[in-house]
Design a binder for these strands. Structure first.
Lengths: 227, 227
DNA sequence: GGGGTTTTGTCACACAACTGTCATACGACC
DNA sequence: GGTCGTATGACAGTTGTGTGACAAAACCCC
């Protein structure tokens, strides 16, 4: 289950947030001070942190900086203060979003989901799995994985190899002959075979297979994978 | 430079945003309709997109969905409507953030910077594709691509091969016989064939095909590609 | 080992795009 | 002004590509 840590000194507001988040299916934890929140996050890492700015002791800005020092968790500031300076300072400190109290729980959770889409890609960086990226398309030959807008795409082995071959030569044309040789190991053979597999690949990775954006045909030359 | 695309139908607001963004050091582009914005983004990908929700024709929500289909550019909604339903719907459609007009430019840019931290995806180190450059004309044999003032030019295979051959011998005259042999592989043949293809090529790469600047004729000698 | 499912390679067809030829017009050069 | 070389538009035949159908092969799960 997705866990959210709420750092907020006002008991009423904190409790209301915790209850609302639990209603929405999150596992919610509370902390009344920055110190307590930081300790909680170190002990048991939550997936998101909501933090107020005006806190006794260490304030919200400092809490964000300390959190950011060794944690990449998405941080959303939930503050009563609607002031450009605060917003800018909080974001500069390392927050990902800033919402003004009172906030609708539906908006808050929608913002958390939006953040998750982005946070996922960072995880990929940390895993250090090489990933070729073409707009919304991600190809990871080592992981044997292809994603489109973050969603895994099921490819057959041949399609996958073909895609990897093209990805490794991103931006360059590969002739049917080259593909036949590199993907299939054929020194000679029917080049139409390539066409068919490219067509099948397009069905799976292009949003409009008839007007491919990434896997393009260069008439008379071959195929190319591009951003 | 970081480029931002602003999709907003109100001329005054769009202009104000564009100017403010440029003041902040961004390269700002404007679009008055979703259609125009989508086209612009397809043609020349910006690093961020700001989009209004109430647009003539395709509305903001649909614009976000269409953008998201094949682009993972960070999208920020800039709307006058401060309604939870709109916010949730926009974020669900694929937006990354939602700010309410009027918005302080400092807040907006702080939010863009916050997004960038998240949006960063791995781009595999890939060797640059070599490009021959002739003024506003760029020829990239390996990419199978030709651009004129940054805009891709659609060439046929023969035209492309002809252009590459000329580009690789930039500044030097190639006789029709040489071209016939290198591009077509003909040891003998009608030299008029070269003329026809040079003519077609000029139509596509020269701004004034009748007075070619780059692909020039050397009467009695042949053709030459020059800066 | 067997039955069902998925994947693969081949083929045929349809359509769009390209090519080479020709006739004619244009323009530079002497 | 005449001549030669070059540009251009039209056209029909050819080629290149996308796609759906199909059968063989590979795979998988009992």
């Amino acid at each position: 289950m997705t866990a959210v840590l709420v750092i907020e000194d006002d008991d009423r507001i904190r409790l209301a947030l915790l209850l609302a988040l639990e209603d929405e299916g999150y596992e919610a934890r509370g902390a009344a001070t920055a110190e307590e929140g930081l300790r909680s996050q170190r002990r048991e890492s939550a997936d998101y942190v909501l933090v107020d700015l005006m806190l006794p002791g260490i304030d919200g800005f400092e809490a964000i900086r300390q959190l950011r020092r060794d944690d990449d968790v998405p941080i959303v500031v939930v503050s009563a203060r609607d002031d450009t300076h605060d917003i800018v300072a909080a974001l500069e400190a390392g927050a990902d979003d800033y919402v003004v109290k009172p906030v609708a729980i539906k908006e808050l959770t929608a913002r958390l989901r939006a953040l998750r889409r982005r946070a996922r890609t960072v995880t990929a960086v940390e895993a250090e799995v090489p990933v070729f990226s073409f707009g919304e398309l991600e190809v990871s030959p080592e992981a044997g994985e292809v994603r489109r807008a973050g969603e895994p795409v099921a490819l057959t082995r041949t399609e996958f190899r073909l895609l990897c071959e093209l990805a490794e030569h991103a931006g360059r044309v590969l002739s049917r002959q080259q593909l036949l040789s590199r993907v299939w190991g054929y020194d000679t053979g029917d080049e139409r075979l390539v066409d068919v597999h490219v067509g099948r690949l397009r069905q799976k990775i292009e949003s409009d297979p008839a007007n491919p954006r990434h896997l393009v045909t260069l008439r008379g030359l071959g195929y190319k994978l591009q951003r």
